[in-house]
Design a protein around this nucleic acid. Structure first.
Lengths: 236, 236
DNA sequence: TACTTGAGTGTCCGGTGGACACTGGGTGTA
DNA sequence: TACACCCAGTGTCCACCGGACACTCAAGTA
């Protein structure tokens, strides 16, 4: 059938265009780019081998010449989407502003690719760039007096918070992010959830950011407490 | 075929058992229980309509008489698995021990049902018990001087941390939880990730808990800073 | 010119969630 | 008592998913 189409094409028009331009056209990078387009436009759920293949005008099985499995495709997508990890050494002011900067950059790229939270959960392969981001943040904590495990835990805590707030933006991870639903539920059952009802009432307005800024400040304050304790008090 | 089996059954044995015990046997609760069994044993990915139906010796379509969709089934599973929210008013010592207690209970049930992190991500319906857990934690922050939004954000921060550490246990959300992989990568490319390499080296042993305790302490310390600031200093 | 290589194809498989028409026993009503 | 309706559970179908595998056929090499 495809060959028939080709025949018609050859007979009726565009004879001048190269007879086989499609050969060697497929590469891992092009596949990843197409998959990212799909994910950006329609979400991670829409990323299937056939969808991606269709966008490249190719059969899904052709993709398997270049990626071993869908998991590998997703891994390549992530590695491509996260971009080069930042160098924070030029950011002045010590560990705290550096981590803030790191979070800003992280959230920026995650906002550009809202499917990243969903794609980066679960057991999976990790690419060098992704590890590079972690490296970058751990390095920012180098001279804080925290031991290695603590530095890693701190970065994990921070990136987890980014993931939570970021995925909640698009997918409503937490009950109260499904705004309308919760609001009506709270209205109908306010006697059952008095504390929530009261909290919803006494919220000091302001645009919701899923608790991003609040959580960031709490985490950094908590880290500050530990770091100062280590520095001045008992150096363990 | 099923009727044949029934016939054989009737002819050869167990004639005494009621002729049609299966009628009215299916209920939402039984379906949810079966689905939870599947999820506990084989993970969320194994929860399909047919799997659940098979466990109940029933056709998958029979389930649709009782739940409208798979999403609804999952919602019922969650609501059933989280259990009754706790009453923390009897826990002495103020908001901090109460939140610690809340986290302990939360982690306990999440450990009993390791699929809960995976099931509670994404847009979905929320049941009264799940909201009840939130209510419970928000109530624990009632007399802290935080406004409603802050109380909600604090609970979100905490439950997000539980989710992250808990799901990492089973699914390796973060790069460095894939222990062996990262360790070999770090060994092979230590020149590329010096900070990570050094951190991995200088970790003060101890059993990893995915940064649960570390993160919890940081978050609670950070909350303490804010609450004390509100109480003593400028009440905003 | 003959042979090998390898990118892309077509077809198949088992699994998924779900639509829809059907069966057949239980029960309320005439 | 007879009948009709109700409705829990069934069987079959569909589109879609990821993936195995054998195939075609153009291009490069010997």
């Amino acid at each position: 059938m495809a060959s028939e189409d080709r025949g018609v094409d050859l007979l009726w028009g565009s004879r001048d265009k190269p007879a086989r331009p499609a050969r060697l056209a497929l590469t891992v990078d092009r596949i990843a780019a197409a998959a990212i387009e799909v994910a950006d436009a329609e979400g991670m759920a829409a990323v299937s081998m056939q969808q991606v293949a269709a966008r490249l005008d190719v059969t899904k099985m052709a993709l398997y010449r270049h990626v071993a499995s869908k998991a590998e495709l997703v891994a390549v997508m992530i590695e491509s989407a996260v971009g080069e990890p930042p160098d924070l050494r030029s950011t002045p002011g010590g560990w705290r502003p550096r981590l803030v900067r790191w979070c800003d950059l992280m959230r920026e790229t995650w906002q550009r690719h809202p499917w990243l939270p969903a794609a980066t959960t679960g057991e999976r392969m990790t690419g060098p760039r992704e590890v590079g981001w972690t490296e970058s943040a751990v390095a920012a904590l180098a001279d804080t007096g925290l031991d290695g495990g603590e530095r890693m835990d701190a970065v994990f805590l921070l990136s987890g918070h980014i993931r939570n707030t970021q995925s909640a933006v698009t997918a409503g991870t937490q009950p109260w992010t499904a705004e309308k639903q919760l609001r009506t539920v709270l209205h109908d059952h306010h006697h059952r959830f008095p504390a929530l009802h009261e909290a919803a009432q006494s919220t000091n307005g302001g645009p919701r950011d899923n608790g991003w800024q609040f959580g960031l400040d709490r985490i950094l304050d908590g880290l500050t407490v530990l770091i100062e304790e280590r520095r001045s008090g008992s150096p363990r």
